[in-house]
Design a protein around this nucleic acid. Structure first.
Lengths: 356, 356
DNA sequence: CTGAAAGCGCTAACAG
DNA sequence: CTGTTAGCGCTTTCAG
């Protein structure tokens, strides 16, 4: 007997068991602890924050009591009194409605989370819609977060500058634009584009295509590096071999097809993200073009899948861990009113099979 | 001239420009608005929350004033007074330190974010370490969040049950285990495993391998479905063709190699995640085994990349959007003390090239 | 070393 | 309809 074929959600289990009052988790508060410890809330507060005013013995006793009762100080109340917040807002500027699309940006998010965690800060995520730019600062204005980390500048540069002018504490992952007023950390995109392209040239490629949306500052810089390497080698760039795209677009396949139809020569592609490169692999092999024998391929980011596809993907690694850590440093600086910095992380070519 | 080759972070830009005081974003507060509007804070509060006690004219005037000044009510203070929070905590149980590894779980996260956003709630992310299970509830105990959404139950089942017993408002994405005390939503893993395997059988496969860590409840159910389909078709499962794994593990390649060395027959693999399936594609093609000609392959989840690899990946789709929405519904129910439910979402086979 | 007292910015009775 | 008043749970002077 085959299992059920229902195509809509199913209610399972006993919807009846828990009566509508869960063991009312009435959270303790400091007064309770104080009473039980026979001291005032001031003492508890000080003890729990490790103030040296309280002798270690008492401090330990109180901490122990609190722990045993699962008590945590109410962050909201503490923040209100202290007039600050221990939370940073993180916005990932994605393409569409999907909060998150690129695994690389995600790994930055993960590292930001870790770095914040180490400093005892929380992380609040916000999603961004193109038509509601002001949502970005609303978390700040409502006092929910002390600052904003923005991953992926895309085409928001001007808006980010506006925010910087208003004194919004922020840190951005993206390209260092000459007129940026905000703290930014990013990879060395020019160098990365240069390394990737030079590598392909060294592998004997003559007609190297570029795939990447150059209206985005990062991809734009990679494209510059690409052009530089070509120029240095005396290759004339073929503008027909440069394609703007968005991931998931049918445009990847269409572009390949149009190149083939036009009989354009190309023996290599430099894609400005691994996700694109992997899609390209699919599109190429679908058309019977083998990588790397006929076309060599280099991606960008070094997402974890890059080592696991076949052929494994040559790519330019961006240090996501440093990225996270640095973003957090910069946001702390910003909150403390320290002068703004821009940090550029090194790009490293990782040679794998797709360009052999 | 080649670009610089520095291998360590670089300081760029003028570190000198912004003097240490950004345009001190002294945030407005309700008193300010009240004064400027010539009313009391009560009126402002009521107006801003859309109370019908305030005539629409006044309401609009005040809202307009607030908007023009970029004023938002301080969420922390409001929460404290109202004794509740408008934030939900989301924990993604990942394998290792990486906050997030699986794109599918991520897309659930994205949908949860959207669904919360629609209800005007914020989302706080926490990372989880195996050795610090109590961190899960600390966001609750400290009053930062009203409930917890947990994505990926892994092997935490017992701990989750403990939390449920303590009355923690929660909702979990995972398998419906018979003794679960917590609200859970998940795919129909048994059905999914069954569909995938039956499909492979219908394609004429005789020796179907299973790849998935069956110590995880979801993969376990998929394995059950796999076994059922085999049994129904009268195929005896070959236990040597069942492999536990973790993504990124060299074990994927090792396993394939060991199968080849032992001369084991296999003409299909059912992998319990797309990420694994894609790695498998790489490992197989590396060894000159072609998909689907020699070995057919079915994955699980239908992550967006699945359609873009080559050959495109046949897989079992899980409705990530419904998942997010349902998790949010369940967490609201839990917070309101409504009875617990378990929801099972349908599984759908998506046929693509890898199994043709 | 410790407690009493005064709020943090807001909401919600409770009276007008 | 609107203002006055009393806190939400905590931290921090300010006096002991």
């Amino acid at each position: 007997m085959p299992p059920n074929k229902s195509t809509s959600p199913t209610q399972v289990g006993d919807a009846t068991d828990a009566p509508s009052s869960p063991k009312a988790r009435r959270s303790m508060q400091m007064t309770d602890i104080a009473r039980m410890a026979g001291v005032s809330t001031s003492t508890v507060s000080r003890a729990l924050s490790g103030s040296s005013l309280i002798p270690e013995a008492t401090r330990n006793r109180i901490s122990e009591l609190a722990r045993s009762l699962n008590y945590r100080v109410n962050v909201g109340a503490a923040n209100l009194r202290r007039r600050d917040v221990q939370t940073i807002g993180v916005a990932i500027l994605g393409d569409s409605m999907q909060l998150i699309s690129d695994p690389f940006l995600l790994s930055i998010l993960g590292n930001v989370a870790d770095a914040l965690d180490e400093r005892g800060m929380s992380l609040m995520i916000t999603r961004l819609l193109e038509n509601r730019k002001h949502m970005l600062t609303s978390m700040l204005d409502s006092g929910q977060v002390a600052g904003l980390i923005i991953i992926g500048q895309l085409t928001w540069h001007q808006h980010l500058n506006d925010m910087a002018r208003q004194g919004v504490p922020m840190a951005v992952w993206g390209a260092s634009l000459p007129d940026a007023l905000y703290p930014v950390v990013g990879g060395d995109n020019f160098e990365g584009g240069y390394l990737a392209t030079r590598h392909l040239i060294q592998q004997g490629c003559k007609h190297i295509a570029f795939f990447g949306d150059t209206t985005h500052p990062e991809a734009g810089m990679r494209h510059q590096g690409y052009l530089r390497a070509l120029q240095e080698a005396g290759h004339a760039p073929d503008s027909r071999l440069a394609q703007h795209f968005m991931f998931g677009d049918k445009r990847i396949r269409e572009t390949i097809d149009s190149w083939l139809n036009q009989n354009l020569q190309f023996d290599a592609i430099f894609a400005s993200s691994d996700v694109t490169a992997i899609s390209l692999m699919g599109a190429l092999s679908e058309r019977g073009i083998s990588v790397p024998a006929q076309v060599k391929l280099v991606g960008y980011d070094d997402i974890s899948l890059a080592a696991h596809v076949h052929p494994s993907l040559t790519t330019v690694r961006q240090p996501a861990d440093q990225a996270g850590r640095t973003l957090v440093e910069l946001i702390f600086d910003a909150i403390q009113g320290k002068p703004r910095r821009a940090v550029m992380l090194p790009a490293q070519l990782i040679e794998r099979e797709s360009s052999r």
